[in-house]
């Protein structure tokens, strides 16, 4: 197949404390630290993976969730290929806020066709015993809001984290194919420059 790697920008959004950084760290470094600092500002990590024969470098962006930091967070939404809307199954308010996060993302990322944009919804902290949001409720929301894939994850015990990211990649690749921007060909996408995987830092 091809040796070209495409760079996909994925952004994690959701209320403070739902576990965005933990999900990212679990996925990229396979570590979990319950006492990880809350994120200040914006961070990102890269991760190489292969999905259905496509070599991909995921650039995963993690942001501070508090409302106050909006103006310095939203500029980084630009150029995202996928958005992971995250809530915590033990925090109903974070679930209720999903719609706001989606709106904020669409507005600031300047998404041209919001109904087609690949969102993936993550209900994190599956490991906790006291749930406030049921699986059915969450699935219902996803269905009503654009038929988004929904994963219940646990950054703590690693449940579904990799699967969710892979699904995100599939959604993006499917989008690209629909719009006839096939990646593993000789066609070079101008805004997503291929590069050798060796230069990647992670």
């Amino acid at each position: 197949m091809t040796t070209k790697t495409s760079l996909l920008k994925v952004i994690l959004l959701g209320d403070g404390g739902v576990g965005k950084s933990s999900i990212m760290n679990r996925y990229v470094t396979n570590k979990f630290d319950a006492h990880l600092f809350h994120t200040i500002g914006v961070e990102f990590l890269n991760k190489d993976l292969e999905v259905d024969g496509h070599q991909v470098t995921l650039q995963i962006w993690d942001t501070a969730g508090q409302e106050r930091f909006r103006s310095l967070r939203t500029p980084f939404y630009r150029g995202s290929d996928c958005c992971l809307l995250t809530f915590s199954v033990d925090d109903n308010q974070s679930f209720l806020n999903l719609g706001n996060w989606k709106k904020e993302f669409i507005y600031y990322a300047d998404v041209k066709e919001p109904e087609k944009f690949p969102f993936v919804v993550l209900g994190n902290k599956l490991d906790v015993t006291e749930r406030q949001v049921s699986t059915e409720e969450a699935q219902q929301w996803c269905k009503e809001n654009g038929d988004y894939p929904y994963y219940e994850t646990s950054a703590k015990d690693s449940t579904n984290v990799a699967i969710a990211f892979e699904e995100a990649v599939r959604r993006v690749l499917a989008m690209d194919e629909r719009t006839d921007h096939l990646i593993p060909t000789d066609t070079v996408k101008l805004h997503r420059k291929p590069r050798s995987a060796a230069t990647c830092c992670s």
């Binding site: 760079l7 920008k9 630009r78 150029g79 995202s80 805004h191 420059k193 291929p194 590069r195 230069t199």
Partner: peptide
């Protein structure tokens, strides 16, 4: 072809 000048960072 380094990834120096992608559009998104500029935006």
């Amino acid at each position: 072809t380094e990834e120096q000048h992608q559009r998104p960072p500029e935006e």
